[in-house]
């Protein structure tokens, strides 16, 4: 008994030490960014240490003010306006489509599903221009619609594929018994599939939020007006070697821009951790 407890404590201690060592590698860049937001340009590029020799206090205040016209308050609220609807629509549409693929038998399903996955395989570089033409002809340039509307139509195929995998790992017997009880397919989705795929849906929310939050290239292509810039564009707005860059401000804003995704992750994780293991699946 005593021995067993000793063994358990050792195991836990080793786990903590391991987690902490690897954890340092994971967290170091963020710490460095925070310290860089207080450093001079010289120090940012000449040493990797964390403690600034000469502290620059202006990074956050001046960085937030931006280069004149608009401040980061606007860029942050723009980003939320772009990201939140995109995430919401992605979750709804991807779940519906994934449910359709995972649970129903219909002609051409395999071909259509192959198309879903195939659409992930073509490199972005060569579809940028024709896609730009599509959104141009729809009159959506310089709006957030090129992000939001495609999300409503489940064109972020990654999530369909992902949710299909999770729905398929739910025993079919559950649906069938519900069907026998007279549930229609939508109620099965809502009452059985949805609760059981909650960890996966939380992952969809996290991924889509982080990816759209950081998405630079699409924002660059579709958004022209500075007053509509999301944070990802605003962060790079003042990086030009033929001018003097205030790196501490860029670093300060990079640190702040990480906060919403980090907070979201921190709050959301308990859902995919609690998961469904408590609901007692089989039956």
């Amino acid at each position: 008994m005593h021995m067993a407890r000793f063994k358990k404590t050792t195991k836990i201690t080793i786990s903590y030490i391991f987690l902490a060592i690897i954890g340092i590698l994971m967290v170091y860049p963020l710490l460095w960014m925070i310290s860089a937001s207080f450093k001079t340009n010289n120090e940012i590029f000449s040493s990797i240490g964390l403690l600034p020799k000469e502290i620059m206090w202006n990074g956050y205040a001046d960085g937030w003010r931006g280069s004149g016209q608009y401040s980061f308050s606007l860029y942050f609220s723009n980003t939320f306006m772009l990201v939140v609807p995109t995430v919401v629509f992605t979750v709804i549409s991807s779940l519906l489509v994934a449910y359709g693929f995972a649970r129903f038998r219909f002609r051409g399903k395999k071909v259509l599903f192959a198309l879903v996955i195939a659409s992930l395989m073509l490199p972005n570089e060569v579809v940028i221009i024709p896609r730009y033409m599509v959104f141009n002809s729809l009159g959506w340039l310089n709006t957030y619609l090129p992000f939001i509307i495609p999300a409503a139509f489940a064109t972020y195929s990654f999530f369909i594929f992902m949710l299909v995998q999770y729905v398929r790992s739910i025993p079919r017997e559950l649906d069938e018994s519900a069907r026998i009880d007279g549930c229609n397919s939508f109620r099965i989705l809502y009452e059985i599939i949805l609760p059981l795929t909650k960890p996966a849906i939380i992952s969809v929310i996290i991924f889509q939020f982080v990816w759209r939050w950081n998405d630079f290239l699409n924002a660059l292509i579709y958004i022209s007006s500075v007053r509509k810039y999301p944070v990802s564009l605003a962060l790079r707005m003042s990086l030009d070697v033929t001018d003097t860059i205030s790196w501490n401000q860029t670093m300060a804003m990079s640190v702040l821009s990480m906060l919403p995704p980090v907070l979201l992750f921190f709050m959301a994780q308990k859902y995919f951790v609690e998961g469904i293991s408590t609901t007692g699946l089989k039956g």
């Binding site: 954890g23 967290v27 860049p29 990086l239 990079s254 990480m258 980090v262």
Partner: peptide, 14 residues
């Protein structure tokens, strides 16, 4: 959360 940080950093200039 710490282990997810590198993925949030993405393509940051840092």
């Amino acid at each position: 959360t710490i282990y997810y940080l590198p993925s949030i950093l993405g393509g940051s200039v840092a």
